[in-house]
Design a protein around this nucleic acid. Structure first.
Length: 593
RNA sequence: GGUCCCGUGGUGUAGCGGCCAAACAUGCGGCCCUGUCAAGGCCGAGAUCGCGGGUUCAAAUCCCGUCGGGACCGCCA
C-alpha cells in the first residue's frame, strides 16, 4: 500500500499516528540541518520534515529531491512546535516526521511552474496538459466540473430520469453545422457522422417510451473555434414526454437553482424565478437574444422624436423602415473624441455606418454630432427619455433593425466592461421565449428554422406557416446566463403531417426528407407522445461558474483555435494502408503539396 | 475567407531607434545554513529579442513578408 492517508486529510486528530503518504514534491525548503517538503496530492498539501537525527538516510536523500518528483514517505504525524503552525494550510496544525523516504520517480524540471498560479503560455500549457492539470486552478476546475455533472445525475435520477447512451457513429445531416464524417470500411463510399447532438435519437427514445431521458452527451461540430466553442463539447441532453414548455423550463430552473446553491454557494443568482422575456422584448431592450441582464444601459428608441429632425442620417434610416436607438452610457460624458472614435469602430464591426452621440459633460457642456438639428425642447425630451444627466454620454445608431440591435447590443456589453458593471459573482439567468419560428435566408432565398427542424410551432401559429411564416412563433426556449446562451430547447413536433409541412416550408425536397429523416417520419406514425427537451452546454456553464474566460480552461484536453490537439498533435496523416482499407483517396488543395 | 492583438533566457515580465553582445523576478547548478512554509544568504550558468527581408551611420525597438498563438467577424439548424 502506497498511502494510508491523503496529504490533504491529515489534521490534529491524526497526531500520534504512523502514516504512509505518497505524492509530488510541491516545494522543498532545505535549511541545511532540517529539510521541509510540502508534499502534494490531489487532496491537498502537508508538510513533511526530514531531520538528520530521526532519519539520517531520508535527510541525505532529500538533498537530491527536486520539484515534482514523486516520493513516498512513512512517518509520524505530530503537532507542529509552538509558533510554527501555518494557518494558511488546512493541514497547518500538524506535520509528518519522516522515518523512511522513498523516491518513486524523479522528474525533469517542468516547462512552467506547477506550484505558482502565474500565467504560462497557453500553447505550452496545452502541450504539457498533464502537467497543467496538476496546477491548483485546473484541479479546481476539473473538480468543479465533476461536481456539476454529479449534481445533474443525482438530481435527474431523483426526478425519475434514465441516463441512456446513444450512438457516436450515426447518420450525416447536412442541415445545420458541418458534420465530422467517419468513413466506413465495410461500405465503400459511405460514411457515418459524429452527432452534432443526439437530437433525433432522444426523440426516438421518447417514441420508445423512455419518457424521461438524459445524457451527458458529447457533441461534434466541424465549425471554426471561439472561446466558448470547441469541435467536441458536452451537453446535458434531456428530453421528456407529455410536457409543455413550462414543464421543461420549471424543471431546469429548479435544477440550476439548487445546483448553484450546492456547487458554488458563494455565487448569487440575480433573480429567482428566472426572468422570462419574449424574443421581441430582449431585442428591443438589449439588442441580443442572449442578453446580460446584470446591468442596465438598455436601448432606448428615439425614432419618433427625431423623425423629421433634418439630420439626414436619422431621416434616411427611418424612411427606409429602420429606426434610431440609443444607449445612455452613464458617466462617460467626458469621453474624448478619440475614445468615442473607438466606440464607433466597435459598432462599425457589426454593420453600423457610424455612431451619433451627445456628450453632456460634467460642466454642462454639450458636444454632439447632431444636436444642432435639435430644438432645445426636443433635446430636452431626448434627455428625459434617456434619463440623461450631466456627465452622461448618449450614443445612437440609426439603421435597419438588425444592424441597430446587433451593434448597440455589442456596444452595451462593451460599455458595461468599461464601466465595470459585470459582477462575476452574480449569475443572471433568464429565459428567452417566443422566437420567430423561421428566419428568411436571403442568400438561399428560403426559410430556415430559427432553432431546428423538429421544433414545434406555437399551436395557434400553425396556420401562419402557409400564409405568413415570418410571423409564426416557435415553441422554443433559450436559457441565458450572463451574456452566454447556455442552453436551448423546444417542444418538438410529434405529428407526421406537421413535420412534413415544416420540411416543405424550409424547402426540403420530399425525397430528400424521406431519405434523411424517413425513420423519424415513420416513427411518428406509431403513437408518438408529445415531447420536448433542452440541451444545456456543460462546458459553458462550468466556464461561467469557474469564472474562466474560455471553455478550454474547464476541459481536460481541449483543442486549440485551429482545432488541433497540440499535445498529441492531432489530426495527423493516416497511413496509405489505412486509407486504402477505407476506400479513401486524399486530394490536396492546390496550394499544398 | 477577413480584421485586430501578441511573440525578449526554462517561465513571467521590463526595455519600444544609440545608454542593451539586453534588465528584473522566478526557475536551474553550486556552496552556507536545524523551524521554514513564495525560507534565507552568497556565487554561477542561461536569450544572436519567433523567422526572413528592408529602412537607417545605428534595429529587440520602425516598415514589409512569413510562421506560431490568441480575440473577433463570417460560420456555429
Amino acid at each position: 500500500m502506497y498511502k494510508t492517508h491523503t496529504c490533504g486529510e491529515l489534521r490534529a486528530e491524526h497526531i500520534g499516528k504512523t502514516v504512509s503518504l505518497a505524492g509530488w514534491v510541491h516545494r522543498r525548503r532545505d535549511h541545511g540541518g532540517v529539510t521541509f517538503i510540502d508534499l502534494r496530492d490531489r487532496f491537498g498539501l502537508v508538510q513533511i520534515v526530514l531531520n538528520p537525527e530521526t532519519s539520517p538516510d531520508g535527510h541525505k536523500l532529500a538533498e537530491s529531491i527536486r520539484m515534482e518528483w514523486v516520493i513516498q514517505v512513512e512517518g509520524l504525524v505530530r503537532r507542529r512546535p509552538e509558533g510554527a503552525e501555518n494557518p494558511n494550510l488546512p493541514t497547518g496544525e500538524i506535520e509528518v516526521e519522516v522515518h523512511t523516504l522513498k523516491i518513486l520517480n524523479p522528474a525533469k524540471t517542468p516547462p512552467f511552474l506547477i506550484n505558482k498560479d502565474e500565467e504560462a503560455d497557453e500553447n505550452t500549457r496545452l502541450k504539457y496538459r498533464y502537467l497543467d492539470l496538476r496546477r491548483e486552478k485546473m484541479r479546481n476546475n476539473i473538480e468543479l466540473r465533476h461536481r456539476v455533472v454529479k449534481f445533474i445525475r443525482d438530481y435527474l435520477d431523483q426526478k425519475g430520469f434514465l441516463e441512456v447512451e446513444t450512438p457516436i457513429l450515426f447518420k450525416t445531416t447536412p442541415e445545420g453545422a458541418r458534420d465530422y464524417l467517419v468513413p466506413s470500411r465495410v461500405h465503400p463510399g459511405e460514411f457515418y457522422a459524429l452527432p452534432q447532438s443526439p437530437q433525433q435519437l432522444k426523440q426516438l427514445l421518447m417514441v420508445g417510451g423512455i419518457e424521461r431521458y438524459f445524457q451527458i452527451a458529447r457533441c461534434f461540430r466541424d465549425e471554426d473555434q471561439r472561446g466558448d466553442r470547441q469541435p467536441e463539447f458536452t451537453q446535458l441532453d434531456l428530453e421528456m414526454s407529455f410536457v409543455e414548455r413550462e414543464d421543461v423550463m420549471d424543471l431546469i430552473e429548479d435544477m440550476f437553482t439548487k445546483m448553484i446553491a450546492k456547487v458554488v454557494p458563494e455565487k448569487k443568482i440575480y433573480s429567482t424565478p428566472f426572468p422570462r422575456f419574449k424574443y421581441q422584448e430582449v431585442m428591443e431592450r438589449f439588442g441580443k437574444d442572449n442578453p446580460d441582464i446584470r446591468f442596465g444601459l438598455e436601448l432606448v428608441n428615439i425614432s419618433d422624436l427625431v423623425e423629421h429632425s433634418g439630420f439626414s442620417v436619422f431621416d434616411q434610416a427611418i424612411q427606409s423602415g429602420g429606426f434610431v436607438r440609443g444607449i445612455n452610457a452613464k458617466g462617460l460624458g467626458n469621453y474624448t473624441r478619440k475614445q468615442i472614435d473607438e466606440l464607433t469602430d466597435l459598432v462599425r464591426q457589426f454593420g453600423a455606418k457610424g455612431l451619433a452621440y451627445i456628450a453632456y459633460t460634467s460642466d454642462g457642456e454639450i458636444r454632439s454630432t447632431f444636436a444642432k438639428f435639435l430644438s432645445p425642447q426636443l433635446q430636452q425630451t431626448i434627455f428625459e427619455r434617456m434619463q440623461a444627466d450631466k456627465g452622461d454620454l448618449l450614443l445612437f445608431v440609426a439603421d435597419k433593425a438588425e444592424v441597430v440591435y446587433e451593434s448597440l447590443g455589442r456596444l452595451r456589453v462593451s460599455l458595461a466592461e468599461k464601466l465595470n458593471l459585470l459582477d462575476p459573482d452574480v449569475l443572471a439567468f433568464c429565459w428567452v421565449i417566443d422566437f420567430p419560428y423561421v428566419v428568411w435566408n436571403e442568400d438561399e432565398k428560403r426559410w430556415d428554422p430559427s432553432h431546428h427542424l423538429f421544433t414545434s410551432p406555437m399551436e395557434e401559429d400553425i396556420p401562419l406557416l402557409e400564409t405568413d411564416p415570418g410571423k409564426a412563433r416557435g415553441q422554443q426556449y433559450d436559457l441565458v446566463l450572463n451574456n452566454y446562451e447556455i442552453g436551448g430547447g423546444s417542444i418538438r413536433i410529434h405529428d407526421r403531417k406537421l413535420q412534413e409541412k415544416v420540411f416543405k416550408l424550409i424547402g426540403l425536397d420530399e425525397d430528400v426528407a424521406r431519405e434523411r429523416f424517413g425513420h423519424m417520419l415513420e416513427a411518428f406514425e406509431y403513437g408518438t407522445p408529445p415531447h420536448g427537451g433542452i440541451a444545456p452546454g456543460i462546458d459553458r456553464i462550468c466556464m461561467i461558474l469557474a469564472g474562466e474566460p474560455n471553455i478550454r480552461e474547464v476541459i481536460a484536453f481541449p483543442k486549440n483555435q485551429a482545432a488541433r490537439d497540440v499535445m498529441a498533435d492531432a489530426p495527423s496523416p493516416a497511413d496509405l494502408k489505412q486509407l486504402e482499407e477505407l476506400h479513401i483517396q486524399v486530394v490536396y488543395p492546390p496550394d499544398l503539396t
